[in-house]
Design a protein around this nucleic acid. Structure first.
Lengths: 269, 269
DNA sequence: CAGTTTGTGTGCTTATACCAAACAAATACC
DNA sequence: GGTATTTGTTTGGTATAAGCACACAAACTG
């Protein structure tokens, strides 16, 4: 007689679907792979991997090219769909573009999901710095503690939620100025709430500073954040503490109003 | 005794994964839905749908908001990843941007997968027309027969492949000028091969014309296509038959060279 | 505060995903 | 160029896990 593995876990969850996503993520990491290669990486029988791949090909989410299996471009269409139907994106897009045009710098619109940072929109102004860095970011999810937009969101998230997030993700160091201590972070969030905006002083990329403002709904719930990034040399003194914060918080405000308007219209299409 | 449902079908495929994607696509179509709503739409027991949703939430691809389940923003990151690692996107991006800058019109970079049209990049020049139309397209896959880029690709696909695609997708009419007959299409493709570029004369959107050129690799295999769209009033005579075709084919050429260069370098990162 | 309708949780059963092992096809090796 | 190795593909049997029906809970409706 076999001992019960006591796994009463509810809600139940589907093992087959989970391994299907494991395969997708491995294909992502390996930038395409063969059946055997995948089977080794995942420690699964070849036959199983093969059947999974056949299913994903049938679903048009995987393609076979050059003797390897790759993630298909249908993920792109799906991603675009999700983005373009996102309330914050719809409400914030034009404002982000306006601010980038006005300042000629990098402007970002971000949100949070499952404790991770997600980039909804970015516009690179004429003088923007950090291109190589930000270009890579779009395809990843990121941490919340080392950026102006991230901290702006953390500051207005319920404290329990913040605890949960730093518990799960940690506070990895990016530069020597990154906040890596729990207490310092909470102090910082307090300051942000007092100011109404967040500052990033070379905490993520050396040589760049940024100012970010939260975007809240009518119940003070965080929807996302907007931020403007500049090289440290161009973001000092009043510019860092007055002028850019004013621009960014005002943009955040416009977006908040847009969201309200959209909600009131209720007409989705 | 039960009759065997004779389904020897190989390769085998996973029913559970297929229904998981069915749920994802239904969530897409319904723009978010509840458990019961989904169960009705898909004609499945509530319990099953619930377990599937729980799995997708665990995987972070579905979120529960406002008492409804929605597709999560992780699809966005995945989509960005797939796009940014696509050879054609990497090779063609800058050239698309250059051409849009030079001409101030709409420029598109597209490819084909599973017989469907996929948009890899679009840049809207200052004078570009058709914004409302193209904005919607990015989140969909489309047909190949009613556009300059689509026809450019069809012209260089193996005939068997073309047959297969029109067999599966049909030749739906978009405007009164859309090619809807198999024979006319094959004549058109012949012309395109002779010219080296494709023209779209209000076959998709009334009032706009376009010129598209295929992007081929060293074995003459189609990788994708690039096109330029203008209002009919600005795309006539020599402009339609000489100048724009020259610009577009030359851009296609540059991209072809870029692909070759990337392949020779072999260094991916 | 009854009556619906929603989401969530649970055992049972059968379909099905998994595995092992065999086969085929392509590549590498000598 | 023929053998050996590695790859992808296929198959049958089996244990398991996905699906179903049902029950429960919780929220909304009137």
């Amino acid at each position: 007689m076999r001992l019960q593995m006591t796994k009463p876990s509810s809600p139940r969850t589907m093992k087959t679907v989970a391994t299907s996503w494991e395969i997708i993520h491995t294909l992502e990491k390996l930038q395409g792979a063969g059946v055997t290669e995948l089977a080794n990486h995942l420690d699964m029988p070849k036959g199983t991997v093969y059947t999974h791949l056949a299913t994903l090909v049938e679903q048009k989410y995987v393609v076979k090219q050059d003797e390897k299996y790759h993630l298909g471009l249908h993920f792109l269409s799906l991603g675009e769909f999700v983005k373009r139907n996102n309330v914050l994106f719809k409400a914030g897009r034009s404002e982000v573009e306006r601010l980038a045009e006005e300042t000629d710098e990098y402007v970002h619109l971000v949100t949070e999901e499952h404790g991770e940072l997600i980039y909804l929109h970015e516009v690179r102004g004429q003088n923007a710095v950090g291109k190589e860095y930000f270009e890579k970011k779009l395809e990843q999810t990121g941490y919340l503690h080392s950026s102006a937009y991230g901290k702006a969101m953390l500051a207005y998230l319920p404290e329990a939620r913040v605890e949960e997030i730093i518990e799960k993700s940690g506070l990895p160091q990016r530069t020597e100025k990154t906040i890596t201590s729990r207490n310092k972070l909470f102090d910082e969030l307090e300051t942000i709430r007092e100011q109404g905006y967040a500052q990033n002083d070379e905490e993520e990329i050396f040589g760049t500073r940024a100012v970010g403002a939260p975007i809240l709904d009518e119940n003070e719930t965080v929807i996302g954040a907007i931020s403007l990034t500049k090289p440290t040399s161009r973001l000092q003194g009043d510019e860092f503490h007055e002028r850019v914060p004013a621009l960014v918080t005002s943009a955040a405000n416009v977006i908040e109003v847009n969201i309200q308007t959209m909600k009131n219209e209720q007409i989705n299409y």
